[in-house]
């Protein structure tokens, strides 16, 4: 069971303090929502966790390992997976390939691998195919397997990205607005998926950046409220969403 600990994390860009002294704790088996107004530093916090941006000060610890400023691919190999706000499917690859590539670990991905494992290749490929189809079915995209990802609709691309993320076997999932731009039916589907993920595997940690308070209310167990780069409040979902100040700053109620 690995949790994510963020200690006094700070980041400034072009002289602006985007993330300032953020300390937070994300526990496994729980869906934690990160909410706050636009520009509060939520996505930047994700960028910092995955090392897309360099951390200025502070520490990020996942499990018992420090992952601060590791190259992004190494952070991913520690088990940190991310759903991007702008989806980022591999547009020229088929839906199947999108998911399949996530199934392979780095030791398979050397050019000489197939030549030294001639006999094993067939069973490896079958295994991967099975796993890829499992995740495609999981998000109901099996019939689109041979379509280039770029030709799928926005909602389908989002589902594909989720399938790809799940196929990667990550233990920490950073989901940046998984329901934005989806219609209510799709939102329902994604929520159902989220709950499925967390109930199927209690060792997973899920962090969610979300603007749709209905969604937060429905799935999140715990909420961090960010404002101007700092954690302003945190606590159980009903507590934070019920807080008067939060409602004033953020929800405008």
């Amino acid at each position: 069971m690995k949790g994510l600990k963020i200690k006094k994390l700070s980041k400034a860009m072009n002289g602006l303090k985007i993330v300032e002294q953020v300390t937070a704790n994300f526990l496994p088996g729980r869906i934690t929502a990160l909410i706050g107004p636009n520009g509060a530093g939520k996505t930047t916090l994700f960028h910092l966790i995955t090392s897309e941006l360099k951390v200025d000060k502070g520490e990020i610890v996942y499990g018992d390992e420090t992952i601060t400023n590791l190259p992004p691919y190494l952070v991913a190999r520690k088990g940190v997976g991310r759903l991007f706000q702008d989806i980022r499917v591999f547009g020229n690859m088929t839906a199947f390939e999108n998911v399949a590539t996530a199934c392979y670990g780095p030791c398979f991905e050397t050019p000489w691998f197939p030549f030294f494992n001639l006999k094993r290749m067939k069973s490896i490929n079958n295994d991967i195919r099975e796993r890829a189809f499992h995740w495609l079915n999981f998000v109901d995209l099996a019939e689109k397997k041979d379509h280039p990802a770029a030709s799928l609709s926005y909602g389908q691309q989002k589902l594909l990205a989720i399938a790809r993320l799940l196929a990667g076997g990550f233990s920490l999932l950073l989901l940046d607005e998984p329901t934005a731009g989806l219609n209510p039916v799709m939102i329902k589907n994604v929520l159902r998926l989220l709950e499925k993920i967390i109930t199927e595997d209690r060792s997973k940690t899920v962090i969610l950046v979300e603007h749709n308070m209905g969604v937060v209310n429905e799935v999140a167990d715990w909420v961090y409220f960010m404002n101007e780069g700092r954690i302003a409040f945190f606590g159980r979902t009903d507590h934070v969403l019920g807080d008067k100040e939060v409602r004033e700053i953020y929800l405008g109620l």
Binding site: T50, P71, Y73, A76, G81, F84, T101, A102, E109
Partner: peptide, 8 residues
């Protein structure tokens, strides 16, 4: 960026 996010 996405591929790196998958550990490539």
């Amino acid at each position: 960026m996405a591929a790196e996010g998958l550990g490539k």
